[in-house]
């Protein structure tokens, strides 16, 4: 699991430009799925045949990033954000483009740092002129945080654990499932970070009878954090509600029952901000009873997200019980 998480989180894949991460995932699943196809938006849909109802499992492969909006005469790049990033997170940070070009963030002189916005910032790739910069980067090119994945005991810190942690869980489930009682579709979705967009089309294409997304959720276990009853290392969290969905009682109970019967630790999650692919899936066609299993994660959308490997392994175990019961 550790090696897989490292491989997945270090891959490049901001929303709308998921080619590299797609290759990594395809390489991991190709020997295990009965069928693998891509839809027009670029979602990976891998099927593991089963006799029962159609189950869709979804984890998004895209990550937050930035997009170049302008290149000035001196070769500095202006940018906008892809997904929810705070400008304060970017101070002192580095990004990397798909072609390997590295840039650092700089900012204009400001009287009060509270005034910091993206339009007061720029990316410096070390170019001396516009022409030199244009050889490396074009307007519209995207970049992601330039960070390694580090394993710290049972915890892992990396960029893009949101939601490569979920991708890792789905991959491990697919690699280990033998004969699922559902006709199971493992979907690695695109463009979740910009509005649950890949989940919308892939769910329409599959038309599942039920669905479970695997995504990350916030925690309430750091000093003076907000009140939220989710902690790192206490097991995966069964989502009850976020801003995009109130999970269907049937799916919620299915996850809880499987955890309790098999003595897998789990938590219950009420997330007051944020949404997940479940939000798009459950409103597909005439409705899909849907739920979500969450990996508790600190510092989401920063270059140093942190989660527990054990929580991911427990999530795999739980989903395997759900599939094979």
């Amino acid at each position: 699991m550790k090696e897989l998480v490292k491989k997945l989180t270090e891959a490049f894949g901001p929303s709308g430009e998921e080619n590299k991460i797609r290759e990594v995932i395809l390489d991991e699943i190709k020997d295990y799925a009965d069928e693998v196809r891509m839809d027009v938006l670029g979602n990976i849909i891998a099927r593991k045949k089963g006799a029962g109802e159609k189950l869709m499992l979804a984890a998004h492969m895209d990550e937050v990033g930035v997009i170049v909006t302008n290149i000035d005469d001196k070769g500095f790049l202006r940018f906008s954000n892809i997904g929810g990033i705070s400008p304060f997170t970017l101070i002192g940070e580095r990004v990397v483009f798909e072609n390997g070009t590295v840039g650092v963030f700089g900012m204009e002189k400001m009287d009060d740092i509270k005034d910091l916005k993206f339009n007061k910032m720029f990316i410096d790739i070390g170019a001396r002129t516009k022409e030199e910069a244009q050889k490396k980067v074009r307007i519209g090119d995207k970049a992601v945080y330039y960070r390694n994945c580090d394993i710290i005991g049972d915890y892992v810190t990396a960029k893009a654990l949101d939601d490569r942690a979920g991708c890792a869980v789905l991959i491990k489930v697919l690699q280990n499932v033998k004969s699922p009682r559902f006709d199971t579709y493992f979907v690695f979705t695109v463009q979740e970070k910009v509005g649950l967009r890949g989940a919308k089309t892939s769910a329409f294409g599959i038309g599942p009878d039920l669905a479970i997304a695997v995504d990350v959720t916030k925690t309430g276990d750091t000093p003076e954090s907000e009140k939220m009853a989710v902690e790192l290392g206490k097991g995966p969290a069964v989502k009850i509600m976020d801003r995009s969905v109130i999970c269907h009682p049937k799916i919620k109970e299915m996850l809880i029952d499987s955890a309790e019967k098999n003595n897998i630790p789990y938590q219950l999650e009420v997330l007051e901000m944020g949404g997940t692919d479940t939000g798009a899936i459950h409103l597909t066609k005439d409705g899909v009873p849907s739920g979500c299993l969450s990996i508790p994660t600190r510092y989401i959308h920063t270059p140093s997200e942190m989660a527990s490997i054990d929580d991911m392994e427990k999530a795999v175990e739980l989903l395997l019980y759900v599939l094979e019961k």
Partner: peptide
């Protein structure tokens, strides 16, 4: 509309 238990 209603409320939901968040923490005990």
């Amino acid at each position: 509309i209603g409320l939901m238990v968040k923490q005990i």
